[in-house]
Design a protein around this nucleic acid. Sequence first.
DNA 1: TCGCATTGCTTAACATGTTAACTGAAAGGG
DNA 2: CCCTTTCAGTTAACATGTTAAGCAATGCGA
Lengths: 154, 154
Amino acid sequence: MSSIEKKPITALSRTRRTLPMALLRARETVMDRFRPMLHRHGVTEQQWRVLRVLDEADSIDASELAEGAAILAPSLSRILKTLETRGFIELRKDPGDGRRSLISLTRAGSAFLAEVAPESAEIYKEIEGLIGAQRIETLLDEIDTLIVSLSEKR
Amino acid sequence: MSSIEKKPITALSRTRRTLPMALLRARETVMDRFRPMLHRHGVTEQQWRVLRVLDEADSIDASELAEGAAILAPSLSRILKTLETRGFIELRKDPGDGRRSLISLTRAGSAFLAEVAPESAEIYKEIEGLIGAQRIETLLDEIDTLIVSLSEKR
DNA sequence: TCGCATTGCTTAACATGTTAACTGAAAGGG
DNA sequence: CCCTTTCAGTTAACATGTTAAGCAATGCGA
């Protein structure tokens, strides 16, 4: 035994054995493999997510982008400013709705993505090799089920 | 179709269908149910994790606490300062090793935890009701397997 | 069409995440 | 012992997370 255990008085589950902690640890464990690579390329994990979502959907508005990248609006505002300064994205007003702004990748943005994507894909394959592609698919399905079960049911 | 799809040129998986994004979304979906309650009690999610880990292990050092709560050392430094100011925790030097500091809950900290714990437990039960306790157990096991598969194998 | 609530996005303020640099204490080797 | 290395924590700097407030454009009912 490395440390003395103590019985908590509360009705709480063991912290390690809860969904929030397990999901957090799992995500950190996975991201540990990507972070050094992203850092070498000078982008944060969130900036990288934004670029990927933009690559998948051509010219979307900020709300869809926020949803797609799982980033809250205030954070996205700052990130878009950074990416625009860096020349990776382009913003223009939605001609039909003056409130919305439409965002798209620039040539430089696409080029950057094309440069980093192979490394990212390779890391993902390493992970698949360690866990098993089928096991990952199963896990993704179960996670989707969990999300559906908890969404919009209050 | 709500938005126009575009085929990305890259070798990347669909962003939504990747481990980091799925784990992030799942965690956010779960935490959405806890956040309002924690906010009412004036603690952040991270502060709450620290208090819970302290409740489970009596008087541990900062490194173990960081590991247990899945919080990096710099963040923990700030959080401990906050919790100490609030009177929930107590720090003292390790008599055997002048570098380490031993941290423990105060009476007030235990009292706070005892006050909030029932609400937290109730929310967790709601979640179990929506997902199924057995399904959660299975998921937790699979996540543990994933973490083990990816840890320390570089 | 006026008045007002709603929507899309930004700003503000504070807490945490992330990397790097730094400090003091302990450990090890010569 | 001294010197160097390692280790535990902290501080710094910048990016993001989180909630609340603000602002302009839009939608809508009276």
